[in-house]
């Protein structure tokens, strides 16, 4: 009888014990539903993070082994030695994000609102580069920008190359091996991460809102500024985050398209892990990079008022 009540039947009259039972049964549900996600986070994020944090505070060598000595000086040493690469990474990532936004917004807007029946085709085209490897796509830029290429001929013909050299964006009369090439590569490689969230938020935009704005005598520009742009802000925030975060940690673009003076922090970390086998320094740099990104992102998200995204 009481078990039948527990299965969700009518309220069992009178007995306080029976009244408490459904409550106890449901109390665990939110936790239970969170379990897969929490387990995932725990095993693949928290535990590795702790390993990384621990590694960064250890001393020793690969051959003698590492022991935790809470050697915080690793952080100060690494950060003072590689502060330039650190700042450069954020500078390049910021520029690439900005460029991706400037290119991606009109593109996403056109696909979402103007493409009509071409929408699926255009979306596939945005994603299509992912069918080839990241490395190959970056290497392709070496061919695009090399000295015999059309782009270089255009830059030479219009003397743009002297301008970019004067600005320090290029070096020694060539486009390759320059900050310009690195930022171009970053922008290109992460553009789809910008376009897709922008598309998702613009695609959901109710066209009747724009019609209503028109009825209220808003010019198309005002309608865009007051309706479309605010409605697409979640897409802008998501897109910029998805572009900025991987771009800041990237090491392939600067390695293949840059020169020794464009090294980003990802390259330094790679070198310390794989070449020098100095795991503590590499771990300290990785951890510092992650914390910096986390802080920047929290400030950014709080500022843009779209906290439901994180």
């Amino acid at each position: 009888m009481s078990s039948a009540a527990g299965l969700g039947g009518g309220p069992p009259a009178g007995s306080p014990a029976a009244a408490a039972r459904p409550g106890r049964r449901f109390a665990g549900v939110p936790y239970f539903l969170l379990l897969p996600g929490l387990l995932w986070l725990g095993v693949f994020f928290v535990v590795p993070m702790l390993f990384l944090l621990s590694q960064s505070l250890q001393t020793g060598t690969l051959e003698t082994g590492y022991r935790l000595t809470f050697h915080f000086a690793t952080y100060t040493d690494a950060l003072s030695q590689f502060s330039r690469q650190f700042l450069r990474s954020f500078e390049y990532a910021f520029l690439a994000t900005l460029l991706a936004l400037l290119i991606g917004y009109p593109l996403a807007y056109a696909i979402a609102l103007k493409a009509g029946r071409w929408k699926p085709v255009l979306l596939v085209m945005v994603v299509a580069p992912f069918f080839t490897s990241f490395l190959l796509r970056t290497l392709a830029w070496q061919t695009i920008l090399n000295s015999d290429g059309l782009v270089m001929r255009f830059f030479r013909g219009t003397h743009l190359i002297s301008l970019t050299s004067a600005l320090g964006w290029t070096n020694g009369n060539q486009l390759l091996s320059s900050p310009l090439a690195v930022v171009t590569g970053l922008t290109y490689n992460f553009l789809p991460f910008m376009v897709l969230p922008l598309f998702a938020s613009l695609d959901r935009l109710d066209p009747r809102l724009l019609e209503a704005a028109g009825d209220l005598y808003a010019t198309p520009l005002t309608a865009f500024r007051r309706v479309t742009l605010p409605m697409s802000m979640p897409g802008v925030v998501a897109g910029t985050l998805l572009t900025f975060i991987p771009a800041a940690g990237d090491f392939i673009n600067s390695q293949l398209l840059g020169n020794p003076k464009t090294a980003m922090i990802g390259q330094v970390i790679e070198g310390y892990f794989l070449r020098i086998n100095d795991y503590p320094t590499a771990a300290a740099l990785s951890f510092a990079l992650m914390v910096t990104i986390l802080v920047l992102v929290s400030v950014y998200v709080r500022r843009s008022g779209t906290e439901e995204l994180v």
Binding site: L53, Q58, L62, E63, L68
Partner: peptide
């Protein structure tokens, strides 16, 4: 203690 458990032995 958790962090200390992450140390590695030498060869």
């Amino acid at each position: 203690t958790l962090l200390a458990a992450c140390g590695t032995k030498g060869t």
